[in-house]
Amino acid sequence: MTGMTRRTALSTLGKLGTVGALAGSPFLMSSAWAQATTLKISHQFPGGTLTEGDFRDRLTRMFAAEVEKRSKGALKFAIYPGSSLMKTNAQFSAMRKGALDLSLVPLSYAGGEVPEVNIGLMPGLVTSYEQGYSWKNAEVGKELARILYDKGIVVVSWIWQAGGVASRTKPVVEPEDAKGMKIRGGSREMDLILKAAGAAVVSLPSNEIYAAMQTGAMDAALTSSTSLISFRLEEVSKALTTGRGNAYWFMFEPLMMSRAVFDKLPKDQQATILAVGADMETFALKAAQEDDAQVAAVYQKSGAKVVDLNAATVKRWQAIARTTAWKDYGEKNENCAKLLKLAEKTL
């Protein structure tokens, strides 16, 4: 096939958009297949390398390298950190439509689109990593995965992160400390307990916290230990409440894949993706716990006052959550009520 003929064939294929146009050309078939096997992974976190930087970025790179290795190069990946491919809040919807292949994103960000997913950041419902990671094989995890699958999403890696509060002023420890402050909770349900405690809530993704705190548009923010470090919030904070030891803020932040894209892959490639995704969970747990400890040192070094939560304080926040966030969520629909009931079994 000459260069001119090849260009003409490509042009014709683009206009027709039919499988039939591929059938007559081995060249076109191989080219199209090669393009289809390069999958895009998007996330909002700072970019790094396999060994350095935000562990969530590292995890996507480790996942990509291992899947490529096990698939013998049949699957390749392009990684787009820092919301460089698309806006943070557009990722979940794009995966549902098949416009984005994979993303590592806080599940609760999609709560406006799929109310059920807000269980992924429900204050006081998960209070330890052991409990959070038990969801995967428990009834609540299986039901959540089923709901997501029905909505066009495949959970590849189950990732949980504890979080704390960075503040421009005083430490936010007890519920009464939040009164009169402008605080970012991270989900509708977190916002409900903050409002009950007397705070004004601010809603934005974690990669926008720094600017909001720097300008004074926000006084404090709850986010994961890793984000507290990666987004350099110690530069705009005078106090930190850590998530180490005890926490009422646990976020489900999975690596997910578009079902539309996943279903088009051969069974062996699907199996490889899920197997590698499961293998990444051990790394994610260890890295998140390391960041829970490291964040305290980072903030102390910057001169911030660092405090930890005790079990009694967590229970006070949990008591508020039961009558506000949990109640509100459980009344959303039958799926939410069922998920909440199943999640309470893991407490």
Rank of each mutant, 00 (worst) to 15 (best):
51 T>H: 06
319 A>Q: 12
347 L>N: 06
62 M>G: 09
277 G>Y: 02
4 M>Q: 09
87 K>T: 14
18 T>D: 08
320 I>L: 15
254 P>F: 10
327 K>G: 04
194 L>K: 05
246 N>K: 09
84 S>V: 01
32 A>Q: 03
342 L>Q: 08
132 G>S: 14
87 K>S: 13
279 D>S: 11
84 S>H: 01
288 A>G: 04
112 G>W: 09
15 K>L: 09
150 D>H: 13
337 A>M: 07
145 A>G: 09
329 Y>W: 04
161 Q>D: 07
228 L>Y: 04
134 S>Y: 06
34 A>D: 06
266 P>H: 11
290 E>I: 11
16 L>I: 02
154 V>A: 06
187 S>L: 04
129 Y>Q: 01
94 A>L: 00
313 T>H: 03
114 V>H: 00
255 L>P: 00
200 A>E: 08
183 I>A: 08
65 A>M: 12
13 L>K: 03
217 A>F: 12
131 Q>L: 11
232 R>M: 06
29 M>Y: 10
27 F>Y: 13
149 Y>F: 10
257 M>Y: 04
182 K>I: 10
346 T>E: 13
122 M>T: 01
170 K>N: 03
268 D>M: 05
62 M>F: 04
267 K>E: 07
23 A>V: 05
150 D>N: 14
250 F>Q: 01
27 F>I: 10
94 A>C: 00
51 T>E: 08
345 K>F: 06
84 S>Y: 00
160 W>H: 12
102 L>Y: 06
277 G>F: 01
236 V>Y: 03
99 A>F: 09
53 G>D: 08
173 V>N: 05
147 I>M: 00
315 K>H: 02
1 M>G: 11
304 A>N: 03
308 D>A: 15
155 V>G: 00
24 G>L: 03
293 A>V: 13
275 A>M: 07
93 S>W: 09
59 L>T: 02
192 L>N: 04
180 G>A: 12
11 S>V: 13
347 L>Q: 07
81 P>E: 04
170 K>R: 10
115 P>N: 12
314 V>E: 05
220 A>Y: 02
256 M>R: 04
86 M>L: 14
339 L>A: 06
233 L>C: 02
78 A>Y: 02
34 A>G: 07
164 G>I: 09
132 G>L: 11
308 D>T: 14
172 V>L: 15
329 Y>P: 00
280 M>I: 02
214 Q>K: 13
203 S>F: 08
53 G>H: 07
228 L>T: 05
126 V>E: 07
180 G>H: 05
142 K>F: 06
2 T>V: 08
340 L>G: 06
136 K>N: 05
243 G>D: 01
278 A>M: 13
252 F>M: 13
271 A>W: 04
277 G>S: 02
16 L>A: 14
105 V>A: 07
171 P>N: 11
165 V>T: 14
68 E>N: 15
109 Y>R: 13
164 G>P: 07
129 Y>R: 01
169 T>P: 00
124 G>F: 05
253 E>D: 14
7 R>K: 13
200 A>I: 03
122 M>L: 14
139 E>R: 15
244 R>E: 08
218 M>H: 07
194 L>M: 12
316 R>W: 01
185 G>L: 06
119 I>L: 12
173 V>Y: 11
149 Y>D: 10
128 S>H: 05
247 A>S: 15
46 P>R: 04
156 V>G: 09
306 V>H: 15
271 A>V: 05
232 R>P: 00
228 L>R: 07
313 T>R: 12
37 T>G: 13
275 A>T: 12
88 T>F: 10
106 P>H: 08
326 W>C: 08
101 D>I: 02
347 L>P: 00
